[in-house]
Design a protein around this nucleic acid. Structure first.
Lengths: 245, 245
DNA sequence: AAAATATTTGACCAATGGTCAAAATGTGGC
DNA sequence: GCCACATTTTGACCATTGGTCAAATATTTT
């Protein structure tokens, strides 16, 4: 039994099967949410039996948490990539906004899943291991945003007197999550006359940044060319969800 | 059988029982979320049998939707009451912010329930009647905010060139819901150093208002006395969640 | 090839949302 | 007060599904 860096064939097979299960579970989750499928169906889909699923995951919740954490890891990757964008701090923050849209486009149901996780009974049914993995990826996303905020304050782009970096980060995170959830609500979309959900999310982020006094403010600077660069350099495939006028 | 304004004794009894069921369901929901209780337990609690519950509600989801709509009605009541506050438009918007905190204090789990409702399978299991009731109360809350925004633009307190009233309303709603959800997340609370969740929510609302250019901006005006008046006139019982320094 | 070990399976269990025939209760006529 | 009829309540019962585990199957070792 190898605990070392070189996995045995068995271990590789186990890993491959875990990814197979996760990919099918992800598909079911994105298509049907949480309730509208069961472990039997998943077992059929991956062509293993139910019992085998339970050798990988302690419960349905544990499995869903694993899918969610995978998505969160991808989001953290995008955030960290976006944070490297060369430019003013607010442009880099903007790049993260684009990263989040790119993510939301690929995992349209993720924010609902994330909300589900917040309901108490989920965490107690999941394994400690996966809980920690989720917390770790969550911390990465937080850190990516917070890091830019701290730098912005250090550089004087963002006033540091009124709010702590954490308060500013919290405001950005809150508005982003809230906006993503709300744009996915058909009724609200009609009420608010939203035709481009991702644009609405980014607009709301801009409002928070402006509110924080993050220079340069929206009407003092032309972000159109910034946006073009962000897309060109970081998210060339963003045309699927991006509608730049 | 009376369809008129004067209900028969039977109809009154039916109504009373429905409220009994709803009040117990509300308690269970707030204490345990959705999963951690079942219809049998609720039946025991109200001292009727399971079958009787299903004469009032078509499914567990239908019941939960009814509870949620009741809460939403209360929120709409608070919003409409807050909108009557005498003062500048931004002060009245602020009053609604307080109303939402007052609501959140009384229904701490409501936003999680609301998120649950957004998951597809819920709506299809609920009755058409209750779906409409929910939409109606949702529209009331939206309208209360939107009405102030429209007035603010008409009065010139809020610039009307850059955003439509609906976009501004949407931004406020998004940041509020997002902030309420996020402040209830223990991990995030630690990360963001949040000691007063309601204050954080209201701060985020202020950031959006400032971002929208809603006069008078936060640093041009002392809202402390406004806040005192809002509390005194509208929410005298707010001391439970309010920590004015 | 046989024994030992590891893995996979699906029948089975318990919990629970939902149903419905039967019991209980209420109502009206005499 | 009693009977027939209508309405309401009940809880045994059903179907679904998350989760378990002894037996079957596959793999490795001797």
């Amino acid at each position: 039994m190898s605990m070392s860096a070189t996995p045995t064939r068995k271990e590789r097979e186990f890993q491959a099967r875990e990814e197979l299960i996760l990919s099918h579970a992800r598909r079911l989750l994105l298509e049907k949410g949480f309730q509208a499928w069961n472990m039997e169906q998943l077992a059929d889909a991956v062509e293993y039996s139910k019992g085998t699923l339970y050798q990988h995951f302690t419960s349905k919740e544990d499995l869903v948490l694993a899918v969610s954490t995978d998505a969160l890891r991808m989001r953290a990757d995008l955030f960290e990539k976006a944070a490297q964008f060369k430019g003013k701090t607010r442009e880099r923050c903007r790049a993260i906004g684009f990263a989040c849209c790119e993510f939301a486009y690929n995992y349209p149901e993720y924010f609902h899943i994330e909300m589900m996780l917040k309901s108490a009974s989920f965490w107690e049914k999941a394994s400690e291991e996966r809980r920690q993995a989720h917390a770790f990826q969550g911390a990465r996303t937080w850190r990516a945003v917070n890091h830019i905020v701290v730098q912005a304050m250090a550089l004087g782009d963002l006033p540091s007197g009124r709010f702590t970096p954490e308060q500013a980060t919290f405001a950005l995170v809150s508005v982003t999550v809230g906006s993503h959830i709300m744009t996915q609500e058909p009724i609200l979309r009609v009420q608010a006359g939203i035709t481009d959900p991702m644009a609405s999310v980014r607009t709301n982020q801009d409002l928070i940044c402006d509110g924080l006094g993050w220079q340069p403010l929206l009407h003092d600077y032309d972000y159109a060319s910034t946006d073009k660069n962000i897309v060109k350099e970081l998210f060339p495939s963003a045309s699927a969800w991006l509608h730049l006028e």
